[in-house]
């Protein structure tokens, strides 16, 4: 059933948020710490457990994957409610930070072993 997938997702998200709040309180940060990450790990673990028991139904998967596919539209809606007017004032900062980050990241890919495995390049 689709609702099982949605319910599982909601449970993991809520549990993650709760754990995140607890971690925040523990380390003295007035915030949710890593709640989303914890929820993701919970969901992966739940999927694994269900798969082992053979209870990972198509409906359940559909209930989760619908929301997974809604992620980009939701990010678009999130972008549409940001304080862009204020951000425009920081234009050069965004440009410098973004460009620098991408340049360094490409160099890192090469350094970490992204070199061609074989001598012949340009296949």
């Amino acid at each position: 059933m689709i609702i099982q997938g949605v319910a599982l997702l909601a449970f993991c998200t809520l549990a993650g948020a709760y754990v995140g709040d607890l971690i925040g309180a523990l380390i003295g940060v007035k915030a949710n710490v890593g709640g989303v990450g914890v929820a993701m790990i919970l969901l992966i673990a739940a999927r694994y457990a269900l798969m082992k028991q053979g209870r990972l139904s198509e409906g359940l998967k559909g209930g989760v994957s619908f929301w997974s596919m809604m992620y980009i539209p939701i990010v678009v809606a999130m972008a549409a409610q940001q304080n862009v007017v204020a951000a425009v004032r920081g234009g050069p900062m965004v440009l410098i930070a973004g460009t620098l980050v991408v340049a360094v990241s490409f160099a890192l890919v090469r350094a970490l072993g992204g070199r061609p495995a074989s001598p012949e390049v340009g296949s």
Binding site: V36, W67, S68
Partner: peptide
Amino acid sequence: LRDFAIVATAF
């Protein structure tokens, strides 16, 4: 909904 959808991608 943002957190909900992000968690879903981990599936």
